[in-house]
Design a protein around this nucleic acid. Structure first.
Lengths: 222, 222
DNA sequence: TGCGTTATTATCCACATGTATAATTGACGG
DNA sequence: CCGTCAATTATACATGTGGATAATAACGCA
């Protein structure tokens, strides 16, 4: 009945490593089974530790949730901005196309990221911290998009730019959700094509054929 | 210590009335506080009954959840189809505009509906029943949209129609989420205008000015 | 009016969750 | 090689959850 109570062996790790592992575990569980699956026990098990350790690195489970959500949102916008910044400023349409395209390939359009987004989305409606994270990343994303649109070579019209940024942002979001939720329903590159065609039509421009190409290394990301 | 155990008085109601009340209570709670707020005790309290009654009308709480989700999704598509059907077939663009516009006013674009949608969205990723409900309503919605697009007076091209239906659907979804989540960020009718402008641009048509008008009675719905 | 049906309430239960605290042990400096 | 510290584990706890079952009273009908 009373086992000899052999204590689980363990290794000491750096704080950053443990925090990252716990955040990653929480994200994966949310993506797979929704927020209700990300219990402290499940998170700890996936991270290879015992539940108590969570409270050692995070003041509460809520704090871990905030950290995970922030990481997800920041990863999305950061990736899109990085792609846009890789194109010279002399090519505004190319920058916009790169910004758009980044949303429709890994590491942005993955079942994990869409799943985490879906699982946490409703929390922004009540939790003020989550709402702040959402606002900071989401509206920041749209503002960045509007800047890229305003840089296009055409007469200036801020009000129009704002409306078009809202529309483009909505189109990207809708396609990202669909493409990430039901990846089997779309051919390779189809979502990107639809996005660029739609945004081009709404802005009255035409993206070069090169914008539609998918970087070959994106098929099997490291 | 032991109160006289006075039993709560109650009235017998019809089965349909009680089921509707429980579903409405569950929806309201999910919209306000997310799925975790919709406990059997909270649902019963809001519906004015005791928790045990839920199990009298639904085999499990899960079954009640399914019923609520189905009602939300069906209300959305039904409302849009009803609006489109009110326009004569001889006016394909008008039908499409009516279909689109229905999504951006009550009873479709409300914080309650968007909140419930957000709260339940991730469940479609795991629960097979929820997934089936989602698929039946969501894809059905898109198919209906594609039919309206295919009816436009222009050369037939099913593949193009499919892509454009996906794009229009994504745009509508994205705007609906934004408009329903942050209604204060948009002027009266602004979301509808952005939607019609964007869809018109993507389809290469121009909707009549009348399509942008908001029915006056929609401001304060019954 | 009185009776039976059953909608509704009240109570109990097994279990899961987040959290708090005590016990242990790995790693590092002397 | 030993002592110290904290990273980590183990255990306990209060609370809340969905579900099961028994008791009761509202309503329809004779």
């Amino acid at each position: 009945m009373s086992e000899p109570a052999i204590r689980r062996p363990y290794r000491r790790e750096g704080e950053e490593k443990r925090r990252d592992a716990l955040i990653a575990a929480a994200m994966a569980l949310v993506a797979e089974g929704g927020p209700e699956a990300a219990t402290v026990r499940a998170i700890a098990a996936r991270a290879g530790v015992t539940p108590g350790l969570i409270r050692h690195y995070f003041q509460s489970k809520e704090e871990l949730t905030h950290a995970a959500y922030r990481q997800v949102m920041e990863a999305m916008t950061h990736e899109a901005m990085r792609a846009a910044a890789a194109i010279p400023e002399a090519d505004p349409a190319g920058r916009l196309a790169a910004f758009v395209a980044a949303n429709f390939r890994p590491p942005v359009m993955t079942t994990l990221l869409v799943g985490v987004w879906a699982g946490y989305m409703h929390l922004g409606r009540n939790d003020p911290v989550m709402h702040a994270i959402h606002e900071a990343t989401y509206l920041g994303y749209r503002d960045r998009l509007q800047e890229l649109i305003a840089a296009l070579p055409r007469p200036a019209d801020p009000a129009r730019d704002r409306r078009e940024a809202i529309a483009c942002n909505a189109l990207i979001d809708g396609l990202w959700i669909e493409g990430g939720s039901l990846p089997d329903n779309f051919d390779q590159g189809e979502v990107l094509r639809i996005a660029l065609d739609g945004i081009g039509a709404m802005l009255g421009i035409r993206f070069p054929e090169s914008a539609y190409q998918i970087p070959p290394e994106s098929e099997t990301p490291a």
